[in-house]
């Protein structure tokens, strides 16, 4: 097999996708919409991720933020490293390399008929949005939807229009908080767990979907524990260094779990024997 007649799939070969829309959401987060040059659809499930690359800079795992039901796909990129810094220099019409989708998504069928409580911290809203958009478009199949969004500072808030749009939908409640008070902010101040007592649905009967920075899980899980929520009814979406995305390179491993294959979405009860998870 040589370069020109390689017929077997190379799992490390990205496909080019063109950025069709790119805009800054705040000082550090860039929103973008992409479409594959080949015309194919990503075909992801809510909660999955892709490996994003610029040839010559590198590759990193990024969550898909859009519902599987729309054309193209969306991501939000925080400028935190060499690759993401380079991505922030791109604009509509530029291209990115994409591999995937990878990992397990949310169990959308199992969630049907249930009340859903999304607990998000910062850009934890980004992967959750793929599921939120899916369930609000198929609202008849789900119960009440509550979205808790906590952000460290006022200027860092993202998807503010989406939050407002969702809140306007019958049966959807959005509660937002910021950690640090701000003159322009009239809403709740405090970490995301301060919103939990304000939830009006029965948390023990609801499916609780948690995504945020590593430190947030411990406190949210403690708060849900106090509310006697069964670990079977909690899903977490974890961040790890998913370098290869295909269960080989070892970087994302937590105990015996390769997060790129069995995660990033896990039912919390399945993590009882995975002490490195939380």
């Amino acid at each position: 097999m040589c370069d020109c007649c390689s017929s077997e799939k190379d799992i490390y070969l990205p496909e080019l996708a063109t950025i069709t829309k790119a805009e800054m959401m705040n000082q550090t987060e860039m929103f973008m919409h992409l479409e594959f040059d080949s015309g194919k659809e990503l075909g992801h499930q809510a909660g999955q991720f892709v490996e994003v690359s610029i040839a010559g800079i590198g590759e990193a795992p990024i969550s898909v933020s859009s519902s599987p039901q729309q054309k193209g796909f969306e991501m939000v990129i925080r400028n935190v490293g060499r690759l993401t810094n380079a991505i922030h220099g791109l604009k509509a019409g530029d291209k990115l390399g994409i591999r995937g989708p990878y990992g397990s998504g949310y169990p959308v069928d199992e969630l049907k008929g249930k009340d859903l409580v999304f607990i998000c911290g910062g850009i934890g809203l980004v992967p959750q949005r793929s599921l939120i958009n899916y369930v609000v478009s198929n609202k008849d199949e789900y119960g009440k939807i509550v979205i808790l969004q906590g952000t460290k500072e006022y200027e860092q808030r993202i998807y503010t229009e989406d939050l407002k749009k969702w809140d306007d939908i019958d049966g959807v409640t959005v509660l937002e908080t910021i950690d640090v008070a701000h003159d322009s902010w009239k809403g709740n101040v405090g970490v995301v767990t301060t919103l939990i007592p304000k939830i009006e649905v029965d948390l023990t009967a609801a499916m609780n979907l948690v995504c945020g920075p590593p430190i947030m899980y411990k406190f949210v899980l403690m708060a849900l524990q106090e509310k006697k929520v069964s670990h079977d009814n909690i899903f977490v979406n974890l961040e790890r260094r998913m370098k290869c995305g295909v269960g080989k390179c070892g970087h994302c491993q937590m105990n015996d779990q390769y997060v790129c294959q069995t995660g990033p979405v896990y039912r919390y009860s399945e993590l009882a024997s995975v002490p490195e998870a939380i």
Binding site: S6, D10, G56
Partner: peptide
């Protein structure tokens, strides 16, 4: 080498045979 590429462009598989 897994891939060869044009910077910020397309990549090709490089399989050692």
């Amino acid at each position: 080498t897994l891939l060869t590429f044009k910077v910020a462009g397309e990549s090709k598989s490089k399989i050692d045979n």
